[in-house]
Amino acid sequence: MKEIRSRNPFTRSLPYILLVVLSLPIILGYLWILVSTFSTRCYGLIPVDQQGNYFKGLTLSNWAFLYDKSKTLNASIWLLTLNTLIIAIGLTVGVVLVSMMAGYALSRIKFPGRKSFLSLTLILHSFPSVTLLIAIYFVLRWIASVPVIGRGIPLIGGFGYNTLGGVILVSIALQLPLGIWLMKGFFDNVSWDLERAALIDGCSRWRTWWQIMVPQIKPGIAALSIFSFMEGWKSFLIPYSFMTSQTKATLSTLLNEMLSETSPVNYGTLAAVGLYQLIPVLVFYIFTQKYLLNIFAGGVKGTA
């Protein structure tokens, strides 16, 4: 194929210049977080000390929040991290399990209402979750009144209002349409013959699903897991709306609280907590981006 390329170096570099200029605010934002995390004060991107000397005042004191509760509105950062982790893991497990089963059924089994179910989930997916908050609030309040399930489960508290489980439940529900469609797409790409061979070899339907079909869509499962984990880790709206007590908050809600404090905001600590929340995501992303790309490639790479 012949490459179409403009001779003029200016027109050739124009798209790049445009892209850099447009993403500059974001890049500067991240840079600012990084710099201010390690400095007493900042003038723009330049760290300064108390006396106002440029390029001075580098410090680790902003990271004191790791052991000093007073820096984070008296909430233990480790407890909040654990909470965030529980939400992320709970969301991932729930979404992946349900999507794998629902996606298989929608891909392979003919049942009345299959088409309408598919279009319904698509509509639900495009629903802004904010509009559902009040309705969900009432549902969670009701669940909370159910014995044991409401607020009697260890670790996640339960599935009612003001519990980790409640937040997980709501997040799963909101994430499911995407997950189900994704899994259905991956299952659609697996050959019918593979399944028939398994049935003839003596598998039950469940076993076929678990031992033959699921292994074929591993890349899809990996992608959905990563995606869901990150969704859960950074989620803000649902935990913010349905968890009121300090000890049950997450890293996102803590950041929000710190920002809206009435006393002068400590930007150094704020940036440090922000970076702290960001690190796992970055590390995770670096190691898993090849699986994430599968979501957009949307299929199993063909083996046999």
Binding site: S191, D193, A197, A198, A304
Partner: peptide, 9 residues
């Protein structure tokens, strides 16, 4: 089967 349908994994 025509597609062999061997279990790839």
């Amino acid at each position: 089967f025509q597609s062999y349908a061997l279990y790839p994994h």
